[in-house]
Design a protein around this nucleic acid. Structure first.
Lengths: 198, 198
DNA sequence: CTTTTTTCTTGATTCAGATCAATGCACAGC
DNA sequence: GCTGTGCATTGATCTGAATCAAGAAAAAAG
């Protein structure tokens, strides 16, 4: 086995074992499929228009994926910290150009798996097929809830719903990124907070 | 094998074989896990607050899932026609009360699979584990795009984007349901259409 | 400790889309 | 053929959140 920083894999195994059982033999084989990468705050993992060659597991730190609209405004589609996966899925799977950009919002460590290694991993280790089925199943539930929130709730309800789901988020993620994630402006968040105090 | 209406299973197999290979033996075993049900237009498959006991495959017709907000307004989260799956996933998986209602918007035929049969199916037929992994993977891509659309686009862009993805939708789904799906009002859709003609 | 950069707050104004209200239209049932 | 019920259009008005514009505060950099 190549010289690998194993710390990131601990976090990966913790995640995997939450959803599926792994033998020691499987655990020994898994790191070969991945490659570790450190990112500094603001460093890009993917740029819009590039091909998304990897699926990334966040072992440490936090990343965001986002689109840029015509006016150059950023719209965050995902905030991913330890234990989350991030990529432009469509680009990764269908080998199209990415519409998402991904960068680090803190100094981070990610574990990258290429398309071919991903296919091989699913093929060779059936419990990984199961892991990803369950992961995606859960992600779908979360995305569904977010979509409902986005179409149904007022700005204040969206903000409160987010705090309820991720109580620590305001300690970790700046307000302007939270705003972008919720499809609101930083000013609106600021006013909501003021209202809540009263 | 029990006496089953096989027509619905043809549509199911077509869907399955788009994503994974099935042996004749597997195809013979699959129907046992499901139960067919006919629904008339407006008939409920699931009500808010009930437990979602089944995952439903739409063999014929069309269904919608939706939430009701405080003011009694409906917000459609999914329109599902032939080849689509529909349920309150969170309720189905975690055995919680459903926040979604599901009903038929046309006379329909669905194939229902219970939680325990779903688990058994995935266990006994590994290519079904693969099928659902790929299905969910693709659904995630679609949901992501919808979320971006919802947070980034104007009303007109949302409508055009929908038409581009499902060109036949306006022939099949009434405008007021399309509006609800997009998080808009029917009046807004009407005005957009008028503007587009000019 | 000082300077620079980034984030957050507050106020004034604007605007896209909702809401309210009325009318027209189409198809299902009798 | 009428008649009712649900769906679509159009206009007038309202409103929640965006935008524009300054500062204040906090964090990072030197």
């Amino acid at each position: 086995m190549k010289n690998k920083n194993l710390s990131g894999y601990d976090e990966l195994f913790r995640q995997l074992e939450e959803k599926t059982a792994l033998t020691e033999d499987e655990k020994a084989r898994i790191p070969q499929f991945f490659e570790s990468k450190n990112l500094e705050k603001k460093q890009y993992l993917l740029r819009q228009g590039d091909y998304c060659k990897n699926l990334a597991f966040v072992a440490k730190g936090a990343l965001r994926s986002y689109t840029l609209d015509d006016k150059g405004q950023e719209h965050i589609s995902l905030l991913a910290w330890e234990g989350w996966w991030v990529s432009d899925f469509k680009s990764f799977i269908a080998e199209e150009k990415a519409i998402l950009a991904i960068d680090a919002i803190e100094d981070s460590e990610v574990l990258l798996i290429s398309r071919s290694n991903y296919e091989a991993l699913l093929e060779e280790i059936p419990s990984m097929e199961r892991y990803f089925r369950i992961l995606y199943q859960n992600s779908l539930v979360t995305k569904d809830r977010r979509l409902i929130s986005s179409n149904t709730y007022t700005a204040e309800e969206k903000y409160l719903h987010l705090l309820k789901m991720y109580p620590f988020i305001s300690q970790r993620i700046p307000q302007n990124l939270i705003a972008s994630y919720l499809g609101l402006t930083p000013e609106t968040i600021s006013r909501i907070k003021k209202n809540l105090v009263e």
